[in-house]
């Protein structure tokens, strides 16, 4: 049994909140540059240039890439041989509080969904935990903006809808979102599981590097086909027209019930942020 102190978790979460918000992941930068090269539409080229300029400024100052520094989605992969000394949830929230304060990040969380008073410190975090083999702890912080979160959808398809139904639904969600989620976007798709599991898979799909395809070749092909379909819609950067509507489509799948085919689409923007550290 390995012991990890709660205070260590606070320290790491604090740092990951700040870094994730100021430094765009390299794979996203590479994708944006690649798409800029392949973009033929003038307005779209100009916008992509501005987007590149923006993350460069954020890198050098450093300052938040986007003013919506999001809710802090915190993913913990906890090794089953790890013992955490102290209160884990409290440790994560303390890290978020310190990170959002010390990093000059925006506090965007209300304490109650209907009575809407800002908590003032961006807590609580959205905490997701998985128990995995081993004795290490992987912490990922993914600040999630709501311009794109609000454009996400879930649907319980019928098994007979099949892969065509999945393609039609994913494309429809992106089309309906149009300019709202700050395209170019990253599309996370969760297929299978239950109602909630599909949504979780879609969110997890957004954590995967855009360089990495689904390990299953059938799903890797589907990711590519969906990307092409989405980029044929013509929405373009900021919705002003162009090829670059999406940077990437990532799919995660899970076994499901004989009677169902849940599909969730979690949209993220060109400011797709996540940063991890393994303890």
């Amino acid at each position: 049994m390995r012991e990890i102190c709660a205070s260590k978790i606070t320290e790491v979460v604090r740092k990951l909140c700040i870094d994730a918000n100021c430094y765009l992941p390299q794979d996203i930068k590479d994708r944006i540059i690649q798409c800029r090269k392949e973009e033929s539409w003038g307005t779209a080229q100009e916008i992509l240039d501005r987007i590149i300029e923006n993350y460069e400024i954020a890198d050098t100052v450093p300052q938040p890439i986007c003013q919506d520094t999001g809710v802090a989605c915190v993913f913990l992969e906890i090794g089953q041989d790890v013992h955490i000394c102290g209160d884990l949830q409290e440790a994560v929230n303390e890290g978020v509080k310190q990170g959002y304060r010390d990093g000059y990040l925006r506090k965007s969380v209300v304490g109650d969904p209907l009575n809407r008073v800002n908590t003032g410190d961006n807590t609580p975090a959205m905490l997701y935990t998985e128990i995995v083999p081993g004795d290490s702890l992987k912490i990922t912080v993914a600040p999630k903006g709501f311009g794109s979160e609000n454009m996400s959808q879930i649907k319980m398809l019928r098994p007979s809808d099949g892969v065509e139904g999945v393609k039609a639904f994913v494309t429809k969600v992106v089309e309906e979102a149009g300019p709202n989620p700050c395209p170019p976007i990253v599309v996370g798709v969760g297929i299978g599981g239950t109602f909630d599991k599909a949504a979780y898979l879609a969110k997890k799909a957004l954590m995967r590097s855009t360089d990495e395809r689904n390990a299953d070749p059938y799903y890797a092909d589907l990711e590519q086909e969906l990307l092409e379909k989405i980029n044929a819609l013509g929405i373009g950067p900021q919705g002003f027209g162009g090829k670059t509507t999406a940077l990437c489509v990532n799919i995660e799948k899970f076994p499901t019930h004989i009677a169902g085919l849940p599909v969730a689409v979690n949209i993220n923007c060109h400011v797709t942020r996540h940063k991890s550290e393994v303890l």
Partner: peptide
């Protein structure tokens, strides 16, 4: 008017 979404660092200048 539309300003470029996700370019908060640039626009702040």
């Amino acid at each position: 008017f539309g300003a470029i979404g996700g370019c908060g660092a640039l626009l702040s200048k």
